[in-house]
């Protein structure tokens, strides 16, 4: 029988297609190449590397004990003795910035780890199983979002005194909703992806499908949102500190350094005092955002290099 569409169905035996594969080109290498092509993302990564490195090595890098007060030197301008000046109690700003980085980054990483965990579990369950469970969980998300969280935050922090743990817990408890929605969306679309249907057809168990097939493909957006989230938490901690509800002195955090500088007598003339912690917050948040954007592009399969 002759066949239409100029299709020749008779070239048996089945021909091997020419498939000389490129020397093994891993997805990670492709992603790295995409990431490196984004200049801001590279700058962000370098900045983060430096910031995180100096936070880790603060005890070795700090020229002084961050809580040592030399009242005679209070509000010294930047100079030989205090590279970045001294604060209103005569403490070395550079040392406090280095130790403050530890606190600010710890709050950022720990609370985002918590909120990503909660958000991923809730979003994954809602998106994969769908139906009533999804509806209930998403109403719960809406409820948390519409909750006056700043108010509750202030109440909680006032009741439990603003320790590092309370702050981290509060940020984690209110920070997961975005992740949950994001992960739910990913699961909702991936659960009907053909490779997931194929896994179901082959009798792969649900738990394995969720982790090994769907979550691994949703990792990109999750990591991106985590990266952006850390910047957000650092900013929020600074804002809370500004209200006096963040990390409490004498523990230095960038937020409370900035807050202690808002005193008008202090500020007058002492421009370096608020400048440095403010600058660190700005740089760090920007760096996290740049890295987040770079990761977004790197994980996006549609943007090809």
């Amino acid at each position: 029988m002759t066949l239409p569409n100029q299709v020749e169905f008779t070239n048996r035996p089945t021909l091997l297609e020419d498939h000389q594969l490129q020397p093994h080109d891993s997805i990670w290498r492709v992603m790295l190449r995409k990431y490196m092509s984004n200049k801001l993302a590279v700058i962000g990564a370098i900045l983060l590397f430096i910031i995180i490195g100096s936070a880790l090595f603060a005890p070795w890098l700090a020229p002084q004990d961050p809580s040592k007060q030399v009242l005679l030197d209070k509000l010294s301008p930047p100079g030989d003795k205090y590279i970045l000046g001294a604060d209103n109690l005569g403490r070395d700003t550079l040392s406090r910035l280095l130790y403050g980085a530890r606190v600010s980054l710890l709050v950022g990483f720990a609370s985002v780890a918590g909120s990503i965990f909660i958000g991923t579990v809730i979003g994954a369950v809602a998106g994969y199983y769908g139906g009533k469970l999804d509806a209930v969980l998403m109403r719960f998300v809406d409820a948390v979002i519409s909750f006056p969280s700043l108010f509750l935050l202030i109440t909680l922090v006032t009741i439990f005194e603003p320790s590092l743990m309370t702050l981290i817990a509060v940020f984690a408890i209110f920070g997961w909703t975005g992740t949950a929605r994001l992960v739910r969306g990913e699961f909702l679309s991936l659960r009907s992806a053909e490779f997931v249907l194929a896994a179901r057809t082959l009798g792969i168990r649900n738990s394995r499908i969720i982790f090994s097939h769907i979550l691994s493909n949703a990792m990109g957006p999750i990591i991106v949102s985590a990266t952006l989230g850390i910047g957000g938490v650092i900013l929020a901690e600074a804002a809370l500190s500004y209200l006096g509800l963040g990390i409490q002195p004498p523990i230095p955090s960038w937020g409370n350094m900035l807050q202690s500088a808002q005193n008008p007598q202090v500020m007058l003339g002492a421009w370096w005092y608020p400048l440095f912690p403010g600058f660190m917050i700005l740089i760090t948040v920007l760096a996290f955002n740049f890295v987040g954007d770079g990761l977004r592009d790197a994980f996006d399969p549609k943007i090809n290099d």
């Binding site: 997805i27 992806a193 053909e194 490779f195 249907l197 194929a198 896994a199 057809t201 082959l202 009798g203 097939h213 691994s216 493909n217 399969p301």
Partner: peptide
């Protein structure tokens, strides 16, 4: 799950990229 299998339409979407 063993005796009936399926071949899918989209050669891109039907394989797990990871």
């Amino acid at each position: 799950r063993r005796k009936i299998q399926m071949v899918f339409q989209d050669p891109y979407a039907s394989l797990n990229p990871r």
